[in-house]
């Protein structure tokens, strides 16, 4: 099976080393991914749809158009690495890995269940996952270590780290922001899912973030912002990240929490809660345009 099946609307994985899809195809994939995210959390009766829906377009682009990976050889030495530092967005990562062909999509429905490897938060036992995450603030440091290892081994792979905006309240992030600048890890690319909502409330109410772009730049990173739901703009941001440079890269993805499901958008209510009932579930699928 390959991506053509998916275009026909089947739940099949896309295998093969590289793909180069146009924006329309990426949109179809992310729509399918959104559907799975909703199905997974509703089936599990728990999980984090809000921050999964906000980052899924960026993830779709990364796994289908940007990263040098091969689902048939997960230990490829020169593969690009991705760390989902905001490990509660496990529905998004698991879904995209399945759609990309790392494991059968049928397994997604085992999410958070006793006999499944699909742990509530991102788990390294799942094919394609580079490190377990779930406690916030640690993924950027892990990414730095991987980036340092690439330099030591003269390998050209890149390390992508997805951060939540609430997550950067952690001190570990800023320690690593300094260290990455010191070691000039230009192969380290942080992507901030700037959806402006965290568990309790809007980020600006919980902890005012100020000018994140200026903060990252002052820590010695090359920074750009983009619309995290517009594939053309996502494409532009990663073209910027791919330019030859001396510094690590900090991409700020301006996103919408719960994107695609009206009642989940811009609220903390669905940060860590699934659709409350069958009615909400069906409304979500309908709005996503699930087939």
């Amino acid at each position: 099976m390959d991506w053509r099946d998916l275009q026909m609307g089947e739940y099949s994985g896309v295998t093969g080393k590289t793909t180069d899809f146009n924006d329309d195809t990426l949109l179809k994939i992310s729509k399918k991914a959104r559907e799975y995210i909703i199905r997974m959390v509703y089936e599990a009766k728990s999980g984090h749809p809000g921050g999964s829906l906000s980052i899924i377009d960026v993830l779709t682009y990364l796994y289908f158009n940007e990263m040098n990976i091969d689902p048939t050889d997960q230990n490829l030495a020169y593969r690009d690495r991705l760390i989902m530092s905001k490990g509660h967005a496990s529905p998004a990562l698991y879904t995209i890995l399945a759609l990309r062909g790392f494991f059968p999509v049928e397994l997604l429905m085992g999410f958070r269940k006793i006999n499944s490897k699909l742990e509530g938060h991102v788990h390294r036992g799942v094919p394609g996952v580079e490190t377990s995450t779930g406690s916030l603030g640690q993924g950027l440091g892990i990414g730095l270590g991987m980036a340092l290892a690439a330099k030591l081994d003269s390998k050209s792979y890149r390390v992508f780290v997805i951060l939540g905006d609430g997550e950067i309240e952690e001190g570990n992030i800023w320690e690593t922001m300094m260290a990455a600048s010191k070691y000039k890890t230009s192969n380290l690319i942080a992507i901030l899912d700037r959806n402006r909502v965290q568990l309790d409330d809007m980020t600006e109410n919980v902890m005012p973030m100020g000018d994140i772009s200026a903060k990252a730049a002052s820590f010695g990173w090359d920074v750009t912002e983009f619309n995290g739901h517009d594939f053309r703009d996502i494409r532009r941001a990663f073209a910027f990240a791919s330019q030859k440079r001396e510094k690590p890269v900090f991409l700020i993805a301006n996103t919408v929490k719960g994107k695609g499901v009206s009642y989940m958008e811009n609220t903390s209510k669905y940060h860590g809660s699934p659709p409350a009932n069958q009615e909400e579930f069906e409304k979500a699928l309908k709005e996503i345009g699930a087939t």
Partner: peptide, 19 residues
């Protein structure tokens, strides 16, 4: 890593995950 133990430990994890 400077006086940054959290960064030190997580970076060590990344290095170990890379062999």
């Amino acid at each position: 890593m400077g006086i940054s133990e959290q960064s030190m430990v997580t970076a060590a994890a990344g290095l170990a995950l890379s062999g």
